[in-house]
Amino acid sequence: MGNLDIKLKVDASGLSCPLPILKASQGIKSVASGELVEVVATDPGSVKDFEAWSKSTGNAMVEHSAEGGKFRYVIRRK
């Protein structure tokens, strides 16, 4: 966990659908190909949504976890 080189952290806590995805999309566009973005959301629907978004865009989900109502996603830009 600690050894990932996160380039950008996006806090989407408290935001409702589709804002976590829109924020992730903005974030991923601001880093270079191969770099990592971490998104934290509290929207339970975001679990499936991030899977779908990753599949659709080709930006790979490197890691995801859920802890205490917080959902954390680490995505690598295609």
Binding site: P18, I21, W53
Partner: peptide
């Protein structure tokens, strides 16, 4: 529309 754009459709 906004989500589709974010999904690069």
């Amino acid at each position: 529309a906004s989500t589709a754009g974010a999904m690069e459709m």
